[in-house]
Structure formats: C-alpha cells, structure tokens
Design a protein around this nucleic acid. Structure first.
Lengths: 344, 344
DNA sequence: GTCGTGGATTGAAAGGTTTCAATTCGATGG
DNA sequence: CCATCGAATTGAAACCTTTCAATCCACGAC
C-alpha cells in the first residue's frame, strides 16, 4: 500500500485506487470527472478507497494529458508596492470564480527576473499570463503571444500589438493632479519621479506639462526632480533635494509619480518642520490605502486598482477560451481624490 | 511543423526537434540536460532545430517523470500586509538561488481559501509548502506533512508537530513594547488588536501582561481594546473607541498588535487633534517600511522579516533534500525600534 | 587484421491521468 | 426466448519527457 506514512515516498495513483476498489482505471477517472456516469454504489466504493489511500490527484499528469493547466500567472513589477498587490487581489477573485489558481511572481524591476518568470510560466503551460512589464515594447512579449500563450499587459498600453492591454490614462491622471494644484493657487510646482524608463513616469509627467501649458504658465515653473525608483526612500531623498533649493526656486506644491514617493516626501517634509499643506502641498498617484491613512491624509490620483486586475483577468480568460478573440485595449479613467495634503 | 503562428495550437515537442535535427529523442534530451555528453556538431544542430521550432520544454511532462516539481509555494495570511510580502521576498531570494520558482498564494484570512491553496499545491506536487496558517493546530497541516509533503510553518510555532517552524518570540515582543512604555512613564496603557483567534495577537498580549505585572502595575490599568482584524481601518475604529473613553480611563499610550492597526490609530488620533506622542504614545509591531515613513515615525517591535522568509525557505529545502531531516523550531528575537511616536 | 576501449547515440520503458471506442450486463418489449 | 437498448464499465492509447541499458563506431594498440 503506497502510503507515505510507512516511509515509502510514492503517493498513490488512480491505479492503486482502482485495484483497491476493484474497478478499472476509467471508472476511477469517471468518479473524479463525471461522477454522474457512475452508479452510486460503485462511486461510494471508489471514494472509500481514495480516502483510505489518501489519494491526491497528480496535476502534472492531468495537465500533460489535457495540454493546459488550471493556472494563470501574474508577473508584477514590485510585490512590495501595495498598488500591485491590490491589482493582484482583483485578479485573484476572478481566478477563484473560474476555479483557477493565480501564480504570483515578482520581477522586482529586474529584466532578468521578468524573463525567468515568463519562461517558467510558459514551460508550465499556464492558461495565460498577466504581466506589468518593465518595457511593454520588448520583443519577448510579442514572441510569447505569437507562440500562442494568451497574454494581457496590465497598467501599460501597447497599441497595435497582438494582445489585450488594460491600463489607466496616465496622461489624464497627470493633468488632474496639476489642474487641482493650479486651482489651489500654486504657481510653482515640482514633479517628482523616475526613472523615466518607466512609461508610467513619462506619461504622468507629460500630462502634468500639458495642463501646465494649457493654463498659460511658464515651463520653467514646473520643476522636474528625478528619482531612481518609485520608493519611499527615494521620496525622502527627493524631499531633501527640494529643501536645498533657493527659496525663489522652491515650489509650493509637489506632484509625485506615485504614493510611495509621496509618502517618503511627506515624511521628510514633516520631520524637517515643513507644514503640509501650508508650506508644501503634496499630490500622490495610485491612492493606495496608506495614502488615506497617512497622518496628513494624502491627495492622490486614484486608479481603480482592483478593477484593473479583474478586467485584465477576464480578458485573459476570454482569450484563453476563444481562439479568435479580438484584442481589446481597455483604458480606465483615473480620478482625483482630494485630502488634507492639498486642502488647507 | 507545429508552429502556433499558423493557427495550430500544439506547440512542438522534443520529438519534433529530434526529427528536424535528424537525431533521436534521447539525444535531444541530452542536449537539454547533459550537454557535455553530446558532440559539439550534434549539439549545434539540435539547438538550431529548437530555435527554429520555438521549442519550449513541457514542465508537466518533466515533472511527471521526475516525480517532483521545481516549485515551492507560500500560502500567506494577508498579501496586502507588507509584512508578509517582505517575508515572501526573503523566500524568493532563496528560491532564486536554488533555481526554483516560488508560488505565492493568498489565503486572505479565510480557511476555505487556505484549504484550496494547500490542496492545489499538493496536487502540483510542489517540492514543499511554506505556510502562515490561520490555525497552526489544524489537523490538515499534520496530515499534509504526514503524507510526505515537506512543510514549514512561518510566523507561528507548533511544538512537537512533525514539521519545522520559524517564528518570532511574540511574548518577548509584547514585553519589549510594554517595558518601553513603562520606561517612558506611562501608567495607563491600552493593548489594541484582535481577533484573538490569531495566535500572534494572543501572545503579544500575553507578553504585555507579563511585563505589566512584573512592573507591579495593577491589571486594570492595562486596557484591552479588541479589533476584528489587523487592518488600518480597524485601527481607526479602535482609535475612535479610545477617544470615547472617560478621561480617567483613557490611556496615555497604546500598544498595537501590528503596524497596520497602529497606522490607522495614528491617523485617527492626529485628525482628531490628539498630539502624538505628547497626548498619546503609540507602539506598533512588525516594523514595516511604512512605520518609519509615517509622518509621525512609529516606534515598533521589529521582526526580522526577510530573515524569517529566508530561514523558512532554507529549512524547507533542507527537508526536501534530506529524507531523515530533523525538524527544527527556529525562534527569532524581536527588537524594539524607538521613534518619535513614543519619544517626546 | 583483430580486439578492446570509450565516447556518442539510440530506443524503449516509465510516469499518472484522461478520453473514447468497445464491451458487458440487465432489463424491456415483442 | 430473442432482440434491442441504455446505462455502466472497461482497457488501451495518448500526452511529453527523462533515464538507462544497449548499440554503434572510430581509433589506437597489439
């Protein structure tokens, strides 16, 4: 009896169950997959045998036969950024509804990790891959899709490519942030973010610039402060650089490329005795939960995080189920949530 | 030619590669697994064929043959709590070093999700499972281990059970927090946290009580405020309940069961005009990055998050590789990090 | 010219599940 | 009593990779 409790390592298979229950392989499989075709008495006997042996389906064998797995994967840019875990949570719900598992992978902003995860998922023959890529124009992604793996890009667009994308209008988000600051009377504003290899950063800045010009304000009064990553630590460093500016060049408000940067900057400002929002107004981006919970609640450009994830997962499953699925480019509109960090 | 680009869905197999390269199956397999055994010219021919066909190894078949996969799984209690993503990051590093993939699953504090994820991982025949369980005493865990799946419990202990555990001395953590507050002169303190079905909560409170008694302070002056979850929202709600207490019963300091609760409470207190730490001192637990970055930087009991993850992953791999591995119970010591939320 | 040697290559078997065409069996209708 | 039918069950084939014993071949030694 192949029971691991006695030290043997092999777990039991349908074959063992079939022998014990005195039926054929096919019947055991039917009990597992089409129980209604099996007579009640036989079914009971088989189920008893399974319980006795501690039978656990071998997913590899199942998958091998079926050609596809019961899994989808999400390769995220930064697992420690709550924005992405919220997106993942939206996906998880959809996966759960379809009885699929979601395989979460963290590329941690490194191209090699991203490539390794994508390769591994492909080898696993997952039903599809969700990815927030470092570079949406990478040929690796096109190859993957061309080879038949359903693929959805999350939080980026890639017009004309062979896959669906789900994103948020970052240019509009940038405009909303700057329009709000202009409304509040700010005439000298800094944009804090980087690296600009990140499309999110480029587009949010682009939106900011558009709004600034549309208001007829001089280009020079929209200062750009570059960071090397979108993290709390980089936000703090940027805050110090801002504080070092001569008073005339110093902005009265800051628009940060995401909330982590904004929280870092807020922390640095507060501890340096700068009153937020009186001396410095701050706008973040993403509206993660920590934004509202900051001691000076943060005004932020909200992205529909969970919805982004849900929609992406749904598109992926639609594509996986329908071979001549038409690729869609869904773009959500962000929304400004004003809180104390910009309201006196 | 089985190329997905022409609409056929089947991807190519070693067999296709063998035919195209004019060699046998075994040789293709050797190129993949023991390239040194294959002559340079043959190898080149095979590699060319692979590239031409876009060959991707089928991990299921490989696994089926090998009996075990190249994957380990971590079932975490709450993916949106940065504490757990930091733990996961530590594991990820170890997995990366061993050329394994880490399958991240979120039980989201729900027993049904936890069970579903554990079952799925077992069906996948993962090399081992890391889990921060809702209830470490659940027989499901013992069964899993008894059935031969290497298992490591993370952030909980379970003395005498058949698996390794890696945890932090939560009782000591509670003592550290309370000792610090007593040192700072507080004579009426609240413990905020729950539900007490969570062992973490029970033990941190136990430590707090021990320290309180050891200092000779009356039990009644250590107030317990229960929450239904360890979240920011619950922290805010608890803050309101505290504010509603009559002045004589109102504590001058709070020890929160984790940082999310502490941040919520901090936010509520600040917006209600309560000065932290002057009117109310706050100690959190975990020392997540957001604790230091809060506008009033949070004193917190630091757990070695990444180290916890690394150690757990190492123990798991040790067990997976060595059948007569001796189970270890590793307990880390937490450390108090004092910041402005308790230092005037 | 033969034998032995060692490296390169081969081919069949195994691993666990699912599927599907074929078979069995009991019952029903004639 | 036979024919027919349907439901239940069966058994072999297929999925793809890896392994390993067996074979092949070229070359050097005798």
């Amino acid at each position: 009896m192949p029971d691991a409790r006695d030290g043997s390592l092999r777990s039991s298979s349908v074959k063992d169950v079939a022998v014990l229950a005195g039926v054929s392989l096919g019947t055991v499989s039917n009990v597992l997959n089409r129980p209604e075709r099996v007579s009640a008495t036989t079914r009971a006997r088989v189920e008893k045998a399974m319980a006795e042996l501690g039978f656990v389906r071998n997913e590899s064998a199942r998958q091998l036969r079926a050609g596809r797995s019961r899994t989808i994967g999400y390769v995220m840019l930064d697992a420690t950024n709550p924005f992405f875990t919220d997106v993942a949570q939206g996906m998880e719900r959809v996966a759960e509804d379809h009885d699929l598992s979601l395989f979460l992978c963290n590329s941690d902003n490194r191209a090699t990790r991203e490539a390794a995860h994508l390769a591994h998922l492909q080898e696993q023959r997952v039903q599809g891959i969700l990815v927030t890529p470092i570079d949406p124009d990478s040929p690796a992604l096109t190859d993957l899709a061309a080879r038949g793996t359903p693929l959805v890009i999350v939080d980026r667009t890639r017009p004309g490519a062979g896959f669906c994308t789900v994103s948020v209008d970052d240019v509009l988000g940038g405009r909303l942030a700057i329009d709000h600051l202009i409304d509040r009377g700010h005439l000298r504003v800094a944009f804090v973010g980087g690296p600009d290899s990140l499309g999110q950063v480029r587009e949010r800045l682009e939106g900011a610039r558009q709004a600034w010009r549309d208001a007829g304000l001089p280009d020079d009064d929209l200062v750009v402060v570059a960071t090397t990553a979108l993290s709390v630590a980089e936000g703090m460093a940027a805050g110090e650089r801002l504080a070092g500016l001569p008073a005339r060049r110093r902005p009265t408000a800051v628009f940060c490329a995401n909330d982590l940067v904004a929280l870092g900057l807020l922390q640095q400002a507060t501890s340096a005795g700068v009153q937020v929002p009186h001396d410095l107004a701050i706008v973040g981006f993403d509206d993660i939960d920590f934004a509202a919970a900051a001691a000076v609640p943060l005004t932020s450009v909200r992205q529909p995080r969970a919805d982004l994830g849900r929609t992406a997962a749904r598109l992926l499953l639609a594509e996986a189920d329908d071979p001549d699925h038409v690729h869609e480019q869904v773009v959500f509109e962000p929304e400004l949530v004003a809180r104390r960090s910009t309201l006196g």
